[in-house]
C-alpha cells in the first residue's frame, strides 16, 4: 500500500533527522501481497447513494479524475440508474489513491480486482 510505504519512509527520515536511530537494521517493508497481485488490473466502482446530490457527484468525478463535464455526467447518471459505474481501471496503487479521494468526498467507492 503506497501510503504505508510512504509513512514508513517518512518515519525513518524523521528519526534520522532527530538522530534517534537506535538499530542498524534497515526498515523492511512487510510483503503483504504478491507481485502478481499488484500487477493485476483493478477497477474503481462508485455505487449509488440516494443522499449525495447528482450535481455534487458530477463535480467530484470532474475533480478526482479530471473528466470533462459530459463524461462525468454520463458516469453519474449510470450510478443513478444502474446502481454503479466503473470509473477507472488500472494499477492498484493509483486506484487506491483515487478511492481514498472519493471517500474524502464521501462517495461510496470500492476497489475491485478485474477477474
Amino acid at each position: 500500500m503506497a501510503q504505508i510505504k510512504e509513512m514508513q519512509r517518512l518515519t525513518h527520515a524523521s528519526n534520522e533527522q532527530a538522530g534517534t536511530i537506535t538499530t542498524a537494521e534497515p526498515t523492511i517493508e512487510k510483503q503483504t501481497r504478491s507481485e502478481e497481485d499488484l500487477d493485476l488490473p483493478w477497477q474503481i466502482i462508485v455505487h449509488n447513494d440516494p443522499v449525495n446530490l447528482m450535481s455534487y457527484v458530477t463535480m467530484v468525478f470532474q475533480r478526482v479524475f479530471g473528466y470533462p463535464r459530459e463524461k462525468a455526467e454520463r458516469h453519474m447518471l449510470e450510478v443513478h440508474h444502474e446502481g454503479r459505474s466503473i470509473l477507472w481501471s488500472g494499477m492498484r496503487e493509483p486506484a487506491e489513491l483515487y478511492v481514498q479521494q472519493l471517500h474524502g468526498y464521501l462517495l461510496l467507492a470500492t476497489l475491485e480486482k478485474i477477474c
Binding site: 503483504t32 487506491e96 478511492v99 467507492a109 470500492t110 475491485e112
Partner: peptide, 15 residues
C-alpha cells in the same frame, strides 16, 4: 467511513 472493497479484500480493509 465506508468499506474500500466489496468485502473480499479483508487485508486491504484492515490497512
Amino acid at each position: 467511513f465506508s468499506s474500500p472493497t466489496n468485502g473480499k479484500e479483508t487485508e486491504t480493509c484492515a490497512e
